[in-house]
Nucleic acid binder design. Sequence first.
DNA 1: AGAAACCGTTGACAAAAATCAACGTTTTTC
DNA 2: GAAAAACGTTGATTTTTGTCAACGGTTTCT
Lengths: 193, 193
Amino acid sequence: MYDLFFRKFNEKVALTAEEEAFVKQYLTPKKLRRKQYFLQEGDVCKSICFVEKGALRAYVLDETGDEHITAFALEGWTLGDLYSFIKAEPATWNIDALEDCELILLSKQAHDELLQTMPKYETYIRLLMTDAYMALQRRTTYMISLPLEERYLAFNQMYPTLFQRIPQHMIASFMGLSAETLSRVRSRISNRK
Amino acid sequence: MYDLFFRKFNEKVALTAEEEAFVKQYLTPKKLRRKQYFLQEGDVCKSICFVEKGALRAYVLDETGDEHITAFALEGWTLGDLYSFIKAEPATWNIDALEDCELILLSKQAHDELLQTMPKYETYIRLLMTDAYMALQRRTTYMISLPLEERYLAFNQMYPTLFQRIPQHMIASFMGLSAETLSRVRSRISNRK
DNA sequence: AGAAACCGTTGACAAAAATCAACGTTTTTC
DNA sequence: GAAAAACGTTGATTTTTGTCAACGGTTTCT
């Protein structure tokens, strides 16, 4: 159940068996069925979740009620409305399960206590944030600088597993496009050769 | 010269006078004239810079040679091609000075040593990364979910000083728009009332 | 197993944004 | 201090993207 979580943790910061056991005390497993919410807009994001199994998406609703997907999370990724989590303010994101999920939750309280008591946890979080920031920076750079077809190819290469598993219209939403436009971009790409 | 740097540092993590002196050893001041490069695409980003005074921008060039601004930095902000800095790979960003600048440089080596020797520095970096990530997340959320006029207003509110100081066509580039489109968006907003 | 919902694609059309060109003003440069 | 470059705006036009509608083929639900 905590397998992947500690595998990922150890990739960043090596833990002894005792340290793993210590961290484990603070974690809460949770299962989520497809379409269930992990977080709803307006609620405070009290935990961030690590995905052991399954897939999640985060999205916001605009004034006309349309969904705009802001993030995905597959196995090995961590997701939450970070702003809401850190500042304890109402979330602007909704997060729900695209598939049945096994999650590992880390509450704000657990997070704060671990930061206080365990330097290795702080290192883990620092590296997690750094990686997340670099990935997001790359994504925004692509968004404003690459034409559609190159952008699709770049994103596809950046998140290959994602693009196989997630419906196209959600990829479109994630890229800020209509489903029809993405479909046409894809057909232009296949007709290139 | 190091005034603002330590002010910002202390806002995140309080330092004693001795600790400040210790950190100061690792810092290098640098002046940059308007239009000078801090970083050029292809070079490795060997330092990140803290802006004591002045303004910088980061941008990428597309296949047709057009500039797309990915980030700005004013007084109190830290800037660099983080991916290049962390991974020691060639930068994809260019960074240059929009005004004469006084910068404080932190080299990769200094960064690594401070991380090893000074837990408070790691905390500072963790908080810096967290803040940067939250800001970037908000920016991307606005990018894909808000219509142009609301997006302009939201960005304006998010970076009020920036919008006063930076030419409109750079704001447009930062928002992924042509200068003409932004100009029309602005005139639509003023005609609202 | 059958009905309903979902998915990806295509076509026709409308809306939005980019492009190109020109302009009067500032700001910079030398 | 004069020339050149940069700036923001506007108009006309083209290109890109969104929208609406329809379709056949899944998958999901019960």
